[in-house]
Structure formats: C-alpha cells, structure tokens
Design a protein around this nucleic acid. Sequence first.
DNA 1: TCAAAATGCGCAACCGATTGCACAAATCTA
DNA 2: TAGATTTGTGCAATCGGTTGCGCATTTTGA
Lengths: 338, 338
Amino acid sequence: MSKKSTIHDIAKALNVTASTVSRALNGHPRISERTREAVEEMAKEMGYQHNQIASALRSGRSNIIGVMVPTADRSFFSRVVSGIEDEANRMGFNVIICQSNDRYENEKRNIEALLRLRVDGVIASMAKETQDYTHFAELKNKNTALVLFDRVNEKLGVNTVVLDDYLGAYQAVSHLIKQGCKRIAHFAGVQHLNIYRERLRGYKDALKDHGLPFDEQIVAYGVYIEDGFNNMKTLLQLSNPPDAVFSASDFSALGAMQTIKAHSLRIPQDVALIGFANEPFTSFLEPPLSTIDQHSHEMGIAAAQLLFEAIQNGDRQFPSRTIVLNPELLVRKSSLRV
Amino acid sequence: MSKKSTIHDIAKALNVTASTVSRALNGHPRISERTREAVEEMAKEMGYQHNQIASALRSGRSNIIGVMVPTADRSFFSRVVSGIEDEANRMGFNVIICQSNDRYENEKRNIEALLRLRVDGVIASMAKETQDYTHFAELKNKNTALVLFDRVNEKLGVNTVVLDDYLGAYQAVSHLIKQGCKRIAHFAGVQHLNIYRERLRGYKDALKDHGLPFDEQIVAYGVYIEDGFNNMKTLLQLSNPPDAVFSASDFSALGAMQTIKAHSLRIPQDVALIGFANEPFTSFLEPPLSTIDQHSHEMGIAAAQLLFEAIQNGDRQFPSRTIVLNPELLVRKSSLRV
DNA sequence: TCAAAATGCGCAACCGATTGCACAAATCTA
DNA sequence: TAGATTTGTGCAATCGGTTGCGCATTTTGA
C-alpha cells in the first residue's frame, strides 16, 4: 500500500515542516546533517517518490526535454537520439521523443504538445516538408530553449549542430576521382534543406577543383530506394552514362546498386558508388557500400550539451552557436577500384 | 511577449472566474454556449496554452505514457514504438521513450524515472538481462497501468501482446522441410526469454511432426551477427553439417550467411536460411533472406489499446488479457530451392 | 564579552488548473 | 402559479512541492 506518501507525510512523521523535508531532499545547505539523514531515512522507509509534476509546476522547470526527428526508424536519427538520451540521463532530464514523419503538420502539432507539457527545451531536426518556421520561432517566444541538428535553418538564429556536409561530399567525390572516375553523377535531395544543398555544393566544388566538368544532366533528385532505382535506370540509358555515383543518401545508393546489378554491370569497375549516412545495412551489401559516417551519437551528445547550457543560462540571451562535426569517409569495396 | 497567460488571465479579461474558464475549455455541459465561445475566442486571442503540468497535478492524470524498449535502434522495436505513438496521438497522450539497452539496471532506473513523472501507464519489452521482476510489480502497486509486449513474463499477471513465436518457428521449419532440407540447425536465444523459448519449441515440434530427429548438436545459442558467424563455422566443421538454418534472429542469420559464402557454399542449395523479425536489411541481402514478419506496427497499436483501456478502467481490476498476433512467413530466395 | 555573522527551520504564499458544493436565476411541471 | 428542476456560474479547497522572508539560536571574531 505504498499508494502515495508526500513530503507532508514525511514531515508529519518527523515533526518538522514540509519545507524542511523539501530542502533536506534537495540538499539545501541550510539544513543540518542530522535532519537530512533523518529525512532521507524516513523517505526511504515510507517509499517516498519525488513528484516531478508538482515540482515542475511550482519551480517552472519540468526537467523534460522534447526531441523531434523526422523518423526514429532511420538509424542516423535513432543514434542521435541515443546520444541525446545518454547526455540527458547524466543531467537528470527525461526525454520525450516525437516524430514528424517529415510532415509539416505533424511537426507543428508536436511542438504545440511539447509546449503544453512545458518542456524545458526542444531538440529537433526539421521535416522535409517544412518551409515555414514560425512554430520554431514560437518556442523562443515562450522562452523554451531550442537546438536544431542536421536539418537546420540558419535564419532562425538558434543553436545548431551540423555535420560538415560540404566537406563530406567533397571528400567522397575527390575519392572517386582518385579512383579514376571521370564522369560522376550525383543523387541529390530537396534543395531547401541545408544538408542536401551543402552536399551538392561539395560535389560541384570537388569536380571543379579537379578539373572535371559539371553536367546538370547527371544530377538526379530523390533520396529513397525507388528514386535511386529509377534515376539510375535513366542515367544508364544516356549515351555517355556515368562511371560513378555520389549519392546524398544510402537508400538511393542502394536503389542504384540494384539497377546496376540488373544491368549486369560491375561495382565498382563499371560504376563506383558512394552513399551518405552509414546506415547499418550499407556494410552488409555486396559489395559493401562506401559511405560517410556522420558521428550521429556524438551529434546527439553535442546537441544535448548545447541545450542544457541554454536551459541553465535561462533568459540571458547568448549569441547562438553552431557546432560543426567532421564527416568520416568510409571507403568500402563499392568505390575501391584498385 | 506571449509569455504566459493562464486561465486566470482569461477569466479576468472576461469578468468571470477561472472555474468557468476551465469548464468552458473542457466542454463542461453546464456552461452556456455564449460563455464557451467567448472564452475560446479570448483564449485564442491571448495565445493561451493549456498547462498540462498544472492539470496533471490537480487531476492526477498526466496524459503521459512511458515506453521502454531494449533499444530503439532495432527496426522491430522502432516500428512497435511507431504504432504506439499513432495510437497515443489519437488518444491525446504523450509518449516518453526510454531504452534499457538490455540492461537490468537501466530498466529499473527508467521505471523509477517514469514513476516520478507520474506517467499514467507504461508499455515495455523486457531487457535481456532481466530476471527479477519486482520493478514491474511496483508499477502495479503504485497503480500505474502496465502492458508488456514481445518479451514478457507470464507470471506477472499483466496485459501482454505477443507474437505467436511458436507458430512462426513451426512454419519456418516446416517450410524448410518442404524445400527438401533434412538436417536443419537452429540458432536460439537465451531461454529465460519467452520468445526464444517458444521459437525453440516450435522448431522441435516441427521436426517431430515431420519425422525428423532432434539433434542437440545443431542447436547453437546467440542472436548477434558474430554469434551467427562463429556458430556457423562450428556447424560447417561437423562431419554431417546442416543443410539449413532456422535462426531466431535476422542478425545471426546474417552472420551465418557471411560464413557460408566464405566457405563458397551456395544459398539455398547447400544451406538454406531463414531469419526472424523482418529487419529491413534482410530484403537487401543476396540472396534476400527469408524471415518472419512480426507485424510490429500492429503490435504497438494493440499494446497501446490495451493500455488505454486499462487506464480508463482505473482501479477496477480486470483479469489480465493477452493478445496473440499471427506471424507471417516471408519466403525469399535464401530458402527457396525450387 | 558582546556585536556580527552564520546556521537551522517554520510560515505562508504560490505554481495553474480542477472540482465538489452552493446558490441564484431561468425553465419546467402539474 | 407555486414548487420542482435545470442551468450557469462562483467559492474555495486542493494537488504536492518550492521558496522568499523572518526569527530564534548558535557560532565567530576581535
């Protein structure tokens, strides 16, 4: 029958007031050692459990943060979430995870739910659909800390953690060129998302810096398996098909791989392939797919650290910071022509 | 500056009391149409947002449920979580996700955190390590609804949602036998978990019912890639190696596949292979891996429905229910010998 | 030795919404 | 038309901690 038991119950049992119990449990310096011990002992004895709800109401700090990702089903995001959770646990915060499923409406609805819950802060990566950012701006109005990661918007003036997508793309393409590829295609994503914009930019610059021409014709859009599958078909029908593809997504790279095999072409000899994100399945493919690791777990930790910093600073407006993580090119057989 | 704005602010502006505002916003029947409209309008105008924390404190219902999975990183679990979220959204509940990482200590700690948060209910799948169930029992003491799924404990007398693992195993093995396999190995998991116990049982029964002998020697334990990799090596060194493997996990099946290929054996001609769980990567393998789909999304929905039912029934003890979902054998090339 | 500072704890308001009870006014019933 | 209902709203307590302020009591310092 450990039904409830509140600090008042403890107080009564020890003949002190609830204030004293509260302070004792929170390690307030003005409480004597003896009282604290007595309180702690009695709390344990009565099976007391701190009521975070009540505490949140009075103190204005819920110790909950919200995390919104496009989907938890993608390994990149779930690893970031893992990192966030690790850091949150260390800091004594609870994490609420929600998914936008890449829909603007869901994203907006979730933000509102988090605001109702009075979370102390939000870490988010934007939905693919999102092009209006007022719901994020509203968080700042309501004095709720916000950190964006991966898919961010620079104009919001908010703390962000991103990968150096430009560099990742640049390295990937440079690597392909070093492997002797002369005509490198690119599978790109929607260009209103920073990450895909940067990857395209890195692709272009790498070509230019190595004296290869940029050809609009071999840049295709789409990041899902089917996109890669179909786009690759189209590319292979060109009079001068590409001898390599740098894909902004592991999934479209996978689709491409299937098409290439269906055409009985060899990877990487006929077409070399590099994806992006280091999804676990990439290492199981045949040949294993070269890709770019985004240090997702670290990204989560970094985002959480930024958030907790902001939460602790409270109102005081600091200039917003951006943490940029370095990509890591994982060279596997799909791009190794030696 | 939409800083706060409470029902009191709305009340003041309309010259009524907070009670009236609260009732109006909650659709209380004793509030006149006119008042309700006025309140709603003013609420919108003032950018009012319901404070769930305050509401939870007073009403005793937080509208939050906790979900604990071994890891969100596995597709099976993340799909279950998806299902839970869908249902929770429909019901106006928020979802807190935590991971045990298959560690008993984490599981225990998470449960305590959820209790402090005064969640209305918990949906969980047990950590591999867990063999002591008092922390789950405590939920019942504290009057918090509990639903277990997939990895459950029958003795807790709690609502559960499970797959018919026995049937799935039985079907898989029967299928292998129909394909002409005579000596079928099994990769099993720890036997204190119901799911692995049932899969082993289904494997044995299928053998028996088809007149094949059960041979302890070709049952190996372990569900990770490395386990499959190593166990397959051992099996292939037997004087009479198996001509098929039914693995209780897609991951160990994957490991086996790598070993088999390394030995230049053909799949499925030399060794047929079936996994369990329908992890997305299974369809990308070569050959694509036969496996068993667990209807994970539906499992999540079912678990959530059970939970919300229990929450709404409140104290009234109902006999605990168990929902059993049917597995679906997905026959792919790794087991198709035609 | 005595004023100043530090220590230990209680008082009571408060966070923001919910809700049982009460009560006046309006509506219904016979 | 008077009594019974119904309707619409207010009052005030409450959920369980937190916290600024105040007041003894003890300790410190010169």
